[in-house]
């Protein structure tokens, strides 16, 4: 089965995000008073093949733990959907 996963990684809430803060300040100084908080992360689009959805999800967890995110500073989440081949 073919799957497409959208994986997000971002700095943990406890870790200061200087890029996010600077970008938030830029938005506010542009006049977007509505902007109250901003965190910057990374977005991955991964295509993968696996026998079942559960196996695909398990595989993504391992990929995230080993390479795609650094557990010291980051957290991750993902959504997965089956695609027709």
């Amino acid at each position: 089965m073919q799957f497409k996963a959208r994986i997000h990684t971002s700095l943990k809430k406890s870790v200061l995000d200087p890029q996010g803060q600077t970008t938030l300040h830029a938005l506010v100084s542009m006049g977007f008073k509505e902007a109250k908080g901003l965190r910057i992360g990374k977005y991955f689009e991964l295509e993968l093949e696996a026998e079942t959805r559960a196996k695909a999800e398990e595989c993504i967890h391992v990929m995230c733990d080993k390479l795609l995110h650094n557990p010291v500073i980051e957290e991750y989440s993902f959504e997965i959907q089956e695609v027709s081949s």
């Binding site: 700095l11 870790v15 200061l16 200087p18 890029q19 600077t22 650094n70 010291v72 500073i73």
Partner: peptide, 17 residues
């Protein structure tokens, strides 16, 4: 070395960017 887990911790962007 940090990414390899041979030393503890991680690196972030410089505070000033």
């Amino acid at each position: 070395l940090l990414e390899a887990g041979l030393l503890p911790g991680a690196m972030l962007r410089n505070k000033t960017l």
